[in-house]
Each structure stands twice: as structure tokens, then as C-alpha cells.
Amino acid sequence: MFGYRSEGVEHPGLWRPELDFFDEKLLGFHDLLEIRFVHAFRKHGVSLQAIRSASRQARELFDQQYPFTCKRFQTDGRSIFATVFDETGDEAILDLAKRQYAFRQVIAPSLYEGIDYAGEGEAQRWYPVKRSKRIVLDPNRNFGKPVLSSTGVDTASIYHAFLAEGQDAKRVSVIFEIPVAAVDAAVKFEHRMAA
């Protein structure tokens, strides 16, 4: 994310951090989503060199600082492909490293699961728990901290109250005026994050 040095060679990060204007190394909402995509590509066997090349090519092609967060990428485990419009205006699959069109038989992993997109395909919010919209990371709500979708209360506050109240979910639900199921969802999410 922030680059590294290996055998005397300086390797820059894959993109410029969203909160680059602070002295500390901080991550913004789009940084988290880009990391999520890099992790998914690595999990599918794509090399870091291929990811670096695809990121650079995609930034140039799509003129976006965070190209992986736009809804157009797929992988076959070796290369990263982007859905683009060819010269005729038809949708096509482009191998970003080779800048060549490819066949449509590529694997489309669930890279986009849980991400809501704006009209032009830019990521707006992320629901990190599979098949659930109870917890959301939204840069427009509570500074992008994980919150309960229904109330906006951050999951860490609920979890700390849960611990302080002797792990009594009913008591915490009364304090925050939220359902016990919401307390359970926040506690489960925080446990998952700690693991």
C-alpha cells in the first residue's frame, strides 16, 4: 500500500493513498476497497507484478485514481481483465497487462459482492458481511467507520458497551435503543475483525 524497499530498490505503492496529506500512514474508504480487490486477485493466483501493471494501465485507461473500485474487473488467475467498449461501441474484455482483447470465458469472482455503486460505477458504500446489510462502511456516515446500517451507531461502541455491561445484549439494546439482533450483529462483526 505504501510501497517498500527490497535489495536497494524502491517499489512504490500500487496507488497514492486517499489520505496522503497527513504525516501518518492512514487508509481511506477507497484504499480499503482497493486493498480488498488486490487481496481477491492475489487469492485467485494473480501475481503482484500483474496487479501492479493492471492498476497502472487501468488508471491511464479509465482516468480514475482508484480503478479497481469501478465495477468492471475480472480475472482468470493469471491476468486482470476489464470490461471496456471496443471501437464499434460493443462491450469487450481487455487484458490490461497485454492491452489485447480476450475471450469472454474468464472467471468473474465475487469481487463486487457487498459494494454499492453510484450511477457512474464509483463505489459508494461497502457491506462487509456476506449476505447481510446490517453493517456498512460508508465514507458519508460516521467517518467511514463500520456502523449499523439502520441507526449509524458504530459497531465498536456497541461492542465496548457489550463488554462493559457484562456481555448483556439486552442491556446494551436498551442503552442504544436498538434491537438485540443489532447488538448481536455488531458484536459478531467486531469478533470477526479481531480474529
Rank of each mutant, 00 (worst) to 15 (best):
V174C: 02
G89W: 10
G152N: 07
D154M: 04
Q64K: 15
D116V: 06
F73E: 01
V147G: 05
Y101N: 09
F143S: 15
A186V: 06
D23E: 15
H39V: 09
I158C: 02
Q100T: 11
I80E: 03
Y112R: 06
H44N: 13
T88H: 12
G166M: 06
Q74L: 15
T88D: 14
N142I: 01
F81S: 06
G89L: 11
A195G: 08
M193Y: 07
V180R: 13
G119F: 00
P17A: 08
F189E: 02
G166T: 04
L148P: 04
T155G: 03
S149V: 03
A92G: 09
D76C: 07
K25F: 10
A195Y: 10
L19M: 13
R16Y: 09
L14S: 05
V187W: 04
Q100G: 07
V172P: 03
P139H: 04
A123H: 08
L48T: 10
I35N: 10
D76R: 01
E120N: 15
E113P: 00
D23M: 12
A156P: 01
E10W: 06
I135V: 11
S79T: 11
Y101S: 09
H191I: 08
D31L: 09
K170I: 11
S79L: 07
D76W: 02
V38H: 04
A185E: 14
E60M: 14
Q74H: 12
L137E: 15
F143V: 11
A156N: 09
L61R: 15
I158G: 03
R36I: 08
E7R: 14
L94N: 07
R42I: 11
G144V: 07
E122H: 00
N142G: 00
Y127R: 03
E113T: 12
R52C: 01
K43W: 10
H11C: 09
A185P: 08
F68E: 05
S173V: 02
R5M: 09
F22C: 05
Y127K: 00
A50P: 01
Y127E: 00
D138P: 02
R59C: 14
L94M: 12
K170T: 12
R99N: 14
P12W: 02
E60P: 00
V174P: 00
G114D: 06
V106G: 08
G89I: 10
S173D: 03
K43L: 14
E10S: 11
A102F: 10
L33S: 06
V38D: 04
A102N: 09
A164F: 05
V174K: 13
K188I: 00
F62I: 07
E120T: 08
T83R: 13
L33V: 05
T151F: 03
A161W: 07
S6L: 13
C70K: 13
R56E: 13
G144R: 04
I115W: 02
Y159C: 02
D31K: 09
G119I: 01
E113A: 12
F22E: 11
Q167K: 15
Q57I: 13
R52H: 11
L96P: 08
M193H: 01
T151M: 03
F103Y: 08
F189R: 02
F73S: 01
Q57G: 00
A118R: 14
H160K: 10
K43Y: 12
A102T: 09
L148H: 05
R78D: 12
R5A: 14
S150C: 05
V180L: 10
S79I: 06
